[in-house]
Design a binder for these strands. Structure first.
Lengths: 406, 406
DNA sequence: GCTCAGTGCTAACTGCGTTTAGCGACTCCC
DNA sequence: GGGAGTCGCTAAACGCAGTTAGCACTGAGC
């Protein structure tokens, strides 16, 4: 990364470095190595002999506080007091004006690194997840969180671990080293997590995941309520005996077997809510199709199996939109119409729900709301701790009607 | 963000700059809470080799280089030389070993902020984009880039501007202030961009976008080649006269009218490649359906219109998978079978392609490859500048067959 | 004439790792 | 034995802003 790839060939700057690997070399023998190579690119052996002719172009300007002070004819301290707005220090209005205009004239920007070094605070937060940014399922969490951070006038970084503990450790340590002031620890799908040790002692909000520690605010979708809503809308349309559930409670995802259908997961809670609501109306599911995964293929297979077994259901509740997509395909293949022959309701309300024909009634995963709330909680002085269950709301499509009189 | 939301109820940490009684806290705390304490360890004068509470827990308070040096019985300079692996400095093997074991014993981690302040380098890169992380279209760019960065032993941050110039400016400035060593400036969809001034003078790679400046490496998909491949596969299956293109050249997206169908965009190049290949075989498109957008609805409407006009095409080339999805729906509604009656080929090879039945033949947008290459270029000493066109490869589905003998 | 409070500012130190200049001790060589 | 060279290390400066202790001065009050 030396420098052919510069938009400006004018000015080599201090960033020039070669990729020797300093820390790595130094400590490679220490197997237990606590001082792991902090990915510090080396300046070691042949440090570029380039004179750091420093600033020239626009990007390189580094006006220091000392320069501002000099121009304003005051001490650095005074300049600092003015620019940091310290009201407990007495600086005459006239001097304040001089400092401010000097700063403006020089285009002074405080050096963030020094500020961090001195204050221990960076004024930034980070959203750390395994796969939220790098997969197409929960991205809107990110957009909403960024948007909210902007409203709080805070810069938010996104960091992604790709699910590897080792990477996570390094990444978090690096962020902590950079004095990130607070963390949002997010998960692509709702699950239980262990709070990494590195984060202890730093403001934290869990997003779409939960931990046993009740002192941490956790933002999760209210899946039970969502399940109830799904059942309710079908009941309201007159369905009752012929409701079949696809998705099932045994889904393993990545959480390992012990995670499977535990309380607090989409897998468990959506179904639990459905059952509750039906029971409340004196009904019960006609059947449950457990699927290994929640992709269209699984939906197709499940529906095909159900249909092969005889009586077609009057309605299907699918654990997510992709399963529902598969159901659409299988129903079409069997010559059954939606919603005339079979009604469908699903969860997530992804783009897919709007793409299908007829459009799919789906209960939205409130990713936007969750992302925004997580930021609000992190930024608040005294956040309410524990679980914050966000309501999942039904987005009506055209996939539900009264049951076909059979 | 003061700190009720702490997983650790241990009181103040370095982040609460209560500089008044910090020391007191640190000491009393060392007594009561051996685990992690935030406050800066006493200004060190007397206290010699404190017990190696090592890296207990994690918020474990910063061990400084001075402490390592003291334990090892050398000066800070010597310790620094050893730990940074400066081979030009003469330190005996024995001293080196002492320093290293002291560092290990204390769980020393260099303070990144100080390193940056002194060296002007942070050992990190950043991927900045408008909507790559926050929308579900190009996420795999991120996963691949992260993965590659990890292979280079470098931490990569992700930053997202949400398309606002103002936010972008602040974000980039912030990252530059933090001495990010290099940038990948990425776009959700292929487009021309203006390189922000802040980035001048800093290693840069453009990803999925391009700029007039030839000194910058740019990674873009080879859309013309992709268009040719799409046409070619249809020609090979015997199609010729009845090929219809959906997507059109007038798509505006967000680029403004002057951007529309410009060379170097998916909008323009895919179609251009198709035309080239057909012309080469002495053929031409039977028709082009320009659509305002590239969503399923647009595909449905386009196909409905084509069918209403009379002769059904033998094959459709759709500018992306979502358009193709709409085409599937419209063809099904018209009772036409895929591929028996109409063949389909499309671009992007998103998940959707695999979900459809029959599976959709689609030419992959090489997001993984692009993300990885961008990182490689950024990390390389002397990257090849200018455009790097990445091959888009056809993923065969079951949506193409020989044309129906009409 | 002297204290006292308030005003307006500055010198000096802090954070922490990196880097330069250079010092004492020893060896080598003519 | 005197100069040069090497080895192994240290003191001190440096990067930059934030923070504390305190100084010089003015005007009021007794």
């Amino acid at each position: 990364m030396t420098g052919q790839n510069r938009p400006s060939d004018a000015a080599p700057d201090a960033r020039d470095h070669l990729h020797g690997d300093r820390m790595g070399d130094a400590l490679s023998d220490a197997a237990t190595d606590p001082v792991e190579k902090a990915a510090t690119p080396g300046t070691s052996k042949k440090r570029s002999a380039r004179p750091s002719r420093a600033r020239s172009g626009a990007g390189a300007r580094r006006v220091t506080l000392a320069q501002v002070a000099e121009v304003a004819g005051v001490s650095r301290s005074a300049a600092s007091f003015v620019l940091t707005g310290r009201t407990d220090q007495r600086i005459s209005d006239e001097t304040q004006a001089r400092v401010r205009s000097a700063a403006a004239a020089l285009g002074y920007r405080p050096d963030v690194t020094s500020q961090i070094l001195r204050t221990g605070q960076s004024g930034t937060i980070a959203l750390v997840s395994e796969f939220v940014a790098s997969t197409p399922y929960a991205n809107r969490i990110i957009g909403a969180a960024l948007d909210q951070a902007r409203k709080h006038d805070t810069v938010m970084f996104i960091a992604e671990t790709l699910g590897e503990k080792d990477t996570e450790e390094r990444l978090l340590q690096n962020l902590v080293d950079r004095r990130v002031d607070g963390f949002i620890y997010a998960s692509m799908f709702t699950q239980a997590v262990t709070i990494p040790d590195v984060l202890r002692g730093i403001p934290l909000v869990l997003l779409n995941c939960c931990a046993p520690d009740d002192r941490v605010p956790m933002v999760i979708p209210d899946e039970v309520e969502a399940g109830r809503a799904a059942a309710q809308t079908l009941l309201q349309h007159g369905h009752g005996e012929g409701i079949h559930y696809i998705g099932g409670p045994t889904l393993d995802f990545r959480g390992g077997p012990e995670w499977g259908g535990r309380v607090g997961t989409a897998v468990h809670d959506r179904l639990a809510g459905v059952k509750q609501e039906l029971a409340h109306a004196g009904q019960a599911l006609a059947g449950i199709s457990e699927t290994d995964n929640w992709e269209p293929q699984n939906g197709r297979e499940a529906v095909a199996t159900i249909l092969a077994q005889g009586r077609a259901p009057t309605a299907l509740i699918c654990a997510n939109d992709r399963l529902a997509f598969g159901a659409y395909q299988a129903l079409a293949a069997a010559g059954l119409r939606i919603p005339e022959d079979v009604s469908l309701v699903s969860f997530d309300h992804s783009d897919l729900a709007g793409w299908l024909q007829p459009s799919l009634s789906s209960i939205a995963l409130p990713h936007e709301e969750m992302g925004a709330l997580a930021v609000d909680l992190l930024m608040s002085e005294k956040p309410r701790t524990g679980k914050h269950a966000i309501r999942m709301t039904l987005h009506q499509g055209n996939s539900i009607s009264a049951p076909h009189p059979s």
